[in-house]
Computed example of a mutant assay.
Amino acid sequence: MCRITKRLLFFAFCSLLWLAAGTSSQAEEMYQISESELTRLEANSNQLAKNNETKQQLLIEQQTQLTEANQQLETVKKELTASKSLNEATQRSLEKANQSLTELEKEAARKVQVKARQRNLWIIIAGGALYACISK
């Protein structure tokens, strides 16, 4: 019997060790809080949830506004490019018009000189003819 008792004791000891190993794992510490503290924690949690939802909504609105602003920016860039092209075309046209006016001015000055020469020539011819008539 001694032998059975030893085996039984050994089996009981191993069982206790096995149970002790299973229950000796890290257990969480328990805290006790009052009902008012629990209520306050729940209120804080609810407020944080509302704040989070509000901020999420605001973020969505801001993302929408950012998308719209980017679209407007692209539109303005296209308009600016078109405006630059139109401005360059207008500048070229003004340069051509200025060149034409300069050429016309030169032509008009040349015509004035020709007319002045013709006038002076006719004055000389008329003066010569008058002199010839007077001298006879």
Rank of each mutant, 00 (worst) to 15 (best):
L19K: 06
N98A: 14
T23K: 04
L41E: 05
S85G: 07
K115R: 11
N70H: 09
A126S: 10
Q99E: 15
L8Q: 14
A12K: 14
E37V: 10
N52D: 06
C14E: 05
T64V: 09
L73M: 12
K6T: 12
Q71F: 02
G22W: 05
A49G: 02
N120M: 07
E105D: 11
L59F: 06
G128Q: 00
T64E: 12
L94T: 08
Q72G: 02
S24L: 09
I4D: 12
G22N: 10
E35T: 09
E61C: 00
L38V: 01
T75P: 01
L9H: 11
I123S: 03
S34K: 01
S25W: 10
R40L: 06
C2E: 15
S83T: 13
L121K: 09
A97W: 06
Q72H: 05
L86N: 15
L9G: 06
A108W: 02
A126K: 02
Q113A: 11
N51T: 06
S83A: 15
E42I: 08
T39M: 01
A132Y: 07
L8C: 08
L130C: 06
R92V: 11
E103R: 11
A43G: 02
Q26R: 04
Q62D: 05
F10S: 15
L38Y: 04
L38S: 04
T54V: 09
Q118I: 06
S15F: 10
A129P: 02
M30S: 06
E95I: 09
T102S: 15
E68S: 06
A20C: 04
E68M: 03
E88C: 02
L58G: 01
A20F: 07
I60R: 09
V76L: 15
K77I: 15
A109F: 01
N70V: 11
A116M: 05
S36D: 08
F11K: 13
A82L: 14
A43P: 00
Q113W: 00
L94I: 14
E42M: 08
L94V: 14
M30L: 12
E42P: 01
M30V: 12
A97K: 13
L104N: 15
K50R: 10
Q91N: 15
E42N: 07
K106Y: 02
I123R: 08
L8V: 09
E42S: 05
S93P: 00
T102F: 03
A12E: 10
R40D: 07
E105P: 00
K6G: 06
L130D: 00
V76Q: 14
